[in-house]
Simulated assay, not measured.
Amino acid sequence: MNPDIQVPSMTRPYTLKQLATYFLRLGATGFGGPPALIGYMHRDLVQQNQWISEEDYREGLALAQLAPGPLAAQLGIYLGYVHYGVLGATLTGLAFVLPSFLMVVALGWAYIYFGGLPWMQAAFYGVGSAVIGIIAIGTYRLTLKTVGKEPLLLGLFALSALATFMAESELLWLVLLSGVVVWLVKAPPAGVRLGSLSPFLLEVFPAIDSTLWQLALFFTKAGAFVFGSGLAIVPFLYGGVVKEFGWLNEQQFLDAVAVAMITPGPVVITVGFIGYLVAGFSGACVAATATFLPCYLFTILPAPYFKKYGKRPDIKAFVDGVTVSAVGAIAGAVIVLGKRQLTDWPAVVLALIAFGLLYRYKKLPELVLIGAAAVVGLLLRYV
């Protein structure tokens, strides 16, 4: 534990049990994805209970945006670290993730057990169509917020979107290379030559036959290299889970995304559902642990030094490049997934309605849309 990040125990405005209980409740009831979850934390911990200072909250949010991994989970881990160090970070992280993990495992069991029944297929037909609209509006808002009008960032965004659409998977080397390009343009270090840069070597793990080992390596890479909000992991997962390994077909993958939308907590918890479909409960545990462990380490290790180095221009420039490329990959993935899911007019209409409603009513809960879409899917099949 770093003494610089903690305060004496007598000045802590809450107990560790209170904080863990709060994150357990947030993980069990917090719908709406990263923007909603980080808003709840600010409202509850900073404004109402005043457990966390505004400065500590902003620093945690900046670090969560800087590092790869799920934004809301990283912010929660950092806030646990503020007054209780590694133990606080560990307990808050586990409490935040555990409720939604148990829910997706239960849904994975039900999906396999009832998967052959027509009613479940009909419900997921409607849900899958609405999910396309939800992802599309989320991507639209994320693009407006992160890309802006700067020509360099717009170009990298468009390049990443086009490359993802053509390859039907996120090109990780392109995302990281975009970060390097913006870094060299905006805050170049002295003496660096573009020609001296070596290609990124991403496939560093040897081939291993065990499915659990393959799950562990793939999801570790997902947790360690994917930047952005919960949506950012969708194109990366699609490229590996569907295209590379063939663990799931495209409909099953869309169903996995839908499960992430209808459960509270971090959107990335869909990895537990995917892992369950691939290798049962062991697969769910391996996938979830491998995904969240990197973001946990990327939060607690740099936390003591973030105040000193987090505002450096070169670090900010790299993050800007990575972020716009990741958003571009999301945009490309929306087109790919839409092409696969929206195969008839009812599906197209459902997606457009979901997009339009969320565009018009920004506070409309996504869970309401998902539930309504499931009902519509059942009605289309049986009525």
Rank of each mutant, 00 (worst) to 15 (best):
P118W: 06
G191W: 03
L254T: 14
L45E: 00
Y305M: 01
A258M: 01
G356F: 01
L63T: 07
A374Q: 05
P13L: 01
S229K: 09
L379D: 02
L277M: 15
Y382R: 05
E203T: 10
A329I: 06
R43M: 03
F306R: 07
A303S: 13
I137G: 09
L45M: 09
K308V: 13
W51H: 00
L107C: 05
A207W: 11
G116P: 01
L162C: 13
G108I: 13
L19R: 00
Y22G: 02
G239K: 09
R340Q: 14
A232V: 03
P3V: 00
T29C: 03
D344G: 04
Y361R: 11
Q65P: 00
D255N: 15
L19F: 02
L152H: 11
V97M: 14
S129E: 09
V268E: 05
A224Q: 04
V7N: 09
S210T: 01
M120Y: 11
E170I: 12
V234Q: 05
T139S: 15
S169G: 08
Y361N: 02
L156G: 07
P206N: 12
M1A: 10
L364V: 05
E366M: 12
T146D: 05
G356V: 14
A161G: 02
P266E: 04
A64P: 08
V375E: 00
E150M: 04
F298G: 01
L24R: 02
K339A: 12
A28I: 01
A123R: 06
F236R: 09
K316F: 04
M261T: 11
P304V: 00
V375N: 00
Y140S: 07
A123M: 10
E244Y: 04
L26C: 01
F281L: 15
V278T: 02
G76I: 04
P264A: 01
I208F: 08
I269L: 10
Y382W: 14
A123G: 14
L352V: 15
S100Y: 01
L142C: 08
L254A: 13
S210V: 00
T291R: 11
I300V: 12
T11W: 10
G328Q: 03
P189Y: 12
V175L: 11
D56F: 13
F200S: 11
P235M: 10
L19M: 11
V192W: 15
T21I: 10
G128K: 13
A20Q: 06
G108D: 12
H42Q: 09
S210I: 02
L212S: 14
F318W: 04
L71W: 12
W345L: 15
K243N: 09
I315E: 05
V259I: 15
G32W: 03
F101P: 09
A167P: 02
